[in-house]
Amino acid sequence: MRFFLLFFAVVLVFPILAGCWDQELLKDIRIVFITGIDYASNGKLESTSLLRDVTSSEVGKEETNELHTVVGSTPRRMGDILNMEVGGTYSTSKMRVILLGEEVAKHDIYPMLDIFYRDPKSALNAKIAVVEGTARDIIKIKKTGTLLVGDHIEKMLESMEKATIIPEITIQTLCSVMLDPGEDFALPYIINNNNQPAVKGLALFQNKHMTGKLDKDDALLYLLMVNKKNHTARITLKVHEEKEPHVRNYITIDVENLKRKMKVTVKDNQIKVNLDLKLKINAIEYPEDDLDEKKVINDLNDKLSKILTKKSEDIIQKMQKVNHDGFGIGSQLMAFYPETWKKIKWPEQYAEVQFNPNVSVEIVNHGIIN
């Protein structure tokens, strides 16, 4: 009896294990590792892609890039045209990076990404960035040093994420915030520095449109203010004016811990935001020394607090100028002041929000010497 029950169970399970009906063999496809989207001269879209080729020889395997540029009305149409050019079917399932030319980013970027959200085989963990000028010029570099350009950009973005210069963001994580009317997002901003891709800072977006930029120094403090510190956050600041040699005017700090508190209030139709940022830091470079003296520490804490508070005010002004609601003030209003949200015009009202930022710094460590 037990044998028949076992046999019956196996017969029922077999149809479920019928095999991989949707398998995609590597020998039948061409893998797109990095792709970029720009506007063509005729107003259509232009896609520049690097297809990964691996060749074997007696000395081992060698990876090369095959460059393809196609023009079409939509991303899907460009994919169909690319299929006609390559030997085998192109696949974005292993894609690591997608780049958007600056002119493309200044318009609604969702139509450029819609194809990835609808295809179940898309690499939703691919990184996304905006390029100064055209994505085509970056991708045509093909190789930087010993690395293919796609590998170089991926590793560069990962490094900048860990250093809290750019946010950790992928096509998948971008989707929810991109469709949120109460919060805006920022993407890495890449430049071509003498045929060497480099992160210059952040591209600021408002409602799926790029409206402004921040350089790397501002980008780090911006990410601290939006409570997105990663592995490290290192800042070099000028705390003296006339020391000799010049290097003695500066201090370099690592942010070890941060606490951020943001409170949004509405009174008499005036929206106010109190943003308090408390930083515990490690002084990792300070040629002036004397960090064993309490007065020196207290003076530095005061100076650093004032400098970073002023910088935060400047960053907020830049954000308001381009209507970039990176703090999610709109979401706070929708949740806690729904009547106010219904009456105001957002994001036009964002420029009139009264921000009161305050950064307080405490040196808790200064290395193994005074």
Rank of each mutant, 00 (worst) to 15 (best):
R2E: 04
L6Y: 07
G19W: 04
D22I: 03
D22T: 01
E24H: 09
K27S: 12
D38W: 02
Y39V: 02
L45N: 01
S47H: 00
R52H: 10
T55H: 11
S56W: 05
E66I: 15
E66R: 15
L67S: 14
P75Q: 04
G88L: 08
S91C: 11
M95R: 15
L99R: 00
E102C: 01
V104H: 08
M112D: 10
S122H: 08
A129D: 00
E132K: 15
A135M: 01
I139W: 09
K140G: 05
H152G: 10
I153N: 04
L157T: 03
E158F: 07
T170R: 08
T173N: 12
P188G: 04
P188A: 12
Y189F: 14
N194I: 08
V199D: 02
L204M: 14
F205W: 03
K208G: 02
M210T: 02
D215E: 06
Y222M: 15
K228C: 08
E244N: 12
T252E: 03
L258I: 12
M262G: 11
T265Q: 04
V266G: 05
I271D: 00
N282Q: 13
P287R: 10
E288C: 14
D290A: 10
E293R: 14
K306H: 11
I307P: 03
K310L: 08
S312K: 01
E313Y: 08
K321R: 15
N323G: 09
D325C: 13
P338V: 06
K342F: 02
W346Q: 09
P347L: 03
Q349F: 12
Q349H: 13
V353G: 07
V364T: 13
